[in-house]
Design a protein around this nucleic acid. Sequence first.
DNA 1: ACTTTGACTATAA
DNA 2: GTTATAGCCAAAG
Length: 105
Amino acid sequence: MNEFYLKVYEIVRKIPKGRVTTYGAIAQCLGANRSARLVGYAMNLSHQFDPTIPAHRVVNKNGLLTGKHHFSTPTQMQELLEAEGIQVKNNQIKNFEKLFWNPCE
DNA sequence: ACTTTGACTATAA
DNA sequence: GTTATAGCCAAAG
């Protein structure tokens, strides 16, 4: 287990309800600005040992739910977001810039 | 050990 | 707005 993954999980768990962040923001917070893919990959690995991570609050830079196919059902991610008050349209989070949460704060 | 793939991002056309 | 390309790093085949 690398420190990188642990930090990723720690940050994701810190994401407030009703807020979202991006892979790139997390990577940048960890000092690995060019390793956004690793964040997504860490999420993919996360479910096999720590499923409690709210991965639905992590989206790509455009606010798109790129990882929805990795959930139990392709619609679960959107449903979880909507359950927290986040509006999703066409796989994209509405008002994404305002809902965005900076993990470094 | 080598190749492919991927929950990404930035840039260019 | 889209598509293409390249850079990035780690896991899986």
